[in-house]
Design a protein around this nucleic acid. Structure first.
Lengths: 342, 342
DNA sequence: CTGAAAGCGCTTACAG
DNA sequence: CTGAAAGCGCTTACAG
């Protein structure tokens, strides 16, 4: 597989040592930026490095030291907003700390596929693993090597590994509470996919919040994560004149639902109020601008890097270590006070 | 930086050799899946590997063989649709071919930042580099090591390295042609950012297409890549009753512009037809559904992996090697025949 | 088809 | 503060 790079031979630590007139040992010390090296010696070495264009061979370093300075990231599809924004946070934080990031995408992470991907990743090639989304793969499917630092933002894995994720329950409570405060008698819900733990958490929080108010939750409408799912659900809900407020599993669904409402002649927000979840940048420019619960994916990503580093330094490795990131209700034009059906 | 992984010692090739009763050499052969090994011997080795949970140490392999089986990917922000979809294509193709992917994000890739990122990446840590977006960094800023296989999808780099990217010019021609065919007397344009080569290509193709028809291009409106840019441009264009058709630099801009039109009391598509570019999934569920030019980012990503492999096998390394990916005009509800201003 | 020897470029103890 | 020696786990010629 590939014949390697042709062209100039990379200078080695020996070349630098020779040019600087010191031992390889000393070059190594300077290269790691550590320890006590006499300033004059250090300058000499630095100059030699620069002149030769020296850069340490990462393979050799990893082989010897046992640490790669690489963090692995497991996603389901980087194409999805939440995952790409989270990955972006991982990337930024990792690079700030001098880690490289190896990204893996496993579209259908049921069993074997994830297992193999993780196995491949963890072959002494990463110092820690961040699981952004593990799909249907559970804790046991993953079969992670013992001793590998792990951090996760997938709801299904919270409790098994250190985690950093949005306070979804509070977010949902805010969304439903907002609609109730506007005078709506009840709030309908379009769910995410049934095999998503996160979708289930949102659904449960929605019905619980209604029950606290003494309202029996209406039957939820099955959706998904995509606009098309929201559109189909919207066509269905538009037929029921009693529907005045809908909380959607995410923004894409909300946007699809709004279009279905428009097409069905139900005005948003005059006839139907709609709230999304996630806080997509585009949602602000929807028509009408979407009221939603913003979650800070980027921050979750960088927090997971911190969790990995924490473990590398001897910190806790179990699921009790949780970073919960607050969500924010963003009130925009898609919600309005309840008005009697026309 | 990190004390390495604690816990079980990973089995080495020597452990497998001992258990299987063969030489390390033979284990290596089986592990690489290559060469001639007697089936019985292979089975024995495979069984020992499985029993021990052996996986080759990638650092050692890389150090010895000089090839990492890693492809580096340079992006500006993985949060953006085009970049994340392209990265997804890279990831899928790379994993199919047994390569890992190291992703780097350089938000402001003017000069030093990219240079350093690339330098860090290319320290014998990657077998090839894929440049999805290099921002304002030019060919010379990058300072890539000679001999490193490179592939790019950034318009600013096409011609310098082997490239895979959408046929933007044809896409723009189709978009403008579509509006003209609907009877519009002219087509206005909201541009992307001025420092984007790709935005400039789209603008040039738009004005050229109009000129072919003997129409003098109206002054373009400065935009960006985001919905907010389109919104501001839309507010401006809505004031001019002569504006009946707008081609936007991308879908986000088009969506923002449509909202501005709605708010200004100009109906889309009855009063103003709008066309976007890219083919975001969400655009299909906009109100009205957005007519756009779809480009296949995922395919560009996987094509770039092919270009890297091609170079690793001795293929061409210069900018004359180009893979041009066709675009597709998707006609939806945001465009309609020209009607005289009300 | 299989094996014994050398070495990839570093870092890790261990001296001084 | 600096250096000489050993070895991380593989693969690459070279034999047989």
């Amino acid at each position: 597989m590939g014949s390697g790079r042709t062209g100039r031979e990379a200078p080695s630590i020996a070349d630098v040592a020779r040019l600087a007139g010191v031992s390889e040992q000393t070059v190594s010390r300077v290269s790691r930026g550590s320890d006590k090296v006499r300033p004059a010696t250090r300058d000499q070495v630095l100059r030699a490095m620069k002149q030769l264009g020296y850069a340490p061979n990462r393979a050799a370093r990893a082989l010897r030291s046992g640490s790669f300075n690489v963090i692995g990231v497991l996603t389901q599809t980087i194409q999805r907003t939440g995952e790409s924004h989270t990955a972006s946070g991982v990337l930024d934080a990792a690079s700030r700390l001098g880690y490289s990031v190896t990204l893996v995408q496993v579209a259908h992470p049921e069993t074997d596929a994830v297992h193999e991907a993780v196995h491949q990743l963890s072959n002494q090639a990463i110092d820690g693993l961040i699981i952004v989304q593990s799909g249907r793969a559970t804790h046991t499917h993953l079969g992670l090597p013992a001793g590998l630092p792990v951090a996760s933002s997938d709801s299904a894995l919270v409790g098994y590994y250190p985690s950093a994720s949005a306070d979804q329950i509070q977010g949902v409570r805010d969304a439903v509470g907002h609609l109730l405060a506007l005078g709506h008698r009840t709030v309908h819900h379009v769910t995410g996919p049934h095999d998503s733990q996160s979708a289930m958490v949102r659904m449960a929080a929605w019905s619980r919040r209604l029950e606290e108010e003494g309202i029996a939750a209406p039957p939820p409408v099955s959706g998904g994560w995509e606009a098309g799912d929201g559109y189909r659900a919207g066509l269905e809900l538009a037929r029921d004149p009693e529907v005045s407020a809908v909380f959607c599993a995410n923004d894409e669904v909300a946007l699809g639902l709004i279009r279905a409402m428009h097409e069905s002649g139900r005005r948003v927000p005059q006839d139907v109020s709609v709230v999304g979840f996630d806080g997509l940048p585009l949602a602000e420019y929807a028509f009408p601008p979407l009221t939603t619960v913003r979650q800070d994916f980027h921050r979750a990503g960088s927090a997971m890097v911190d969790l990995i580093v924490e473990q590398l330094e001897g910190g806790p490795r179990d699921g009790s270590r949780r970073i919960v990131i607050p969500t924010e209700l963003v009130e925009r034009g898609s919600t309005a006070p309840y008005a009697l059906p026309r």
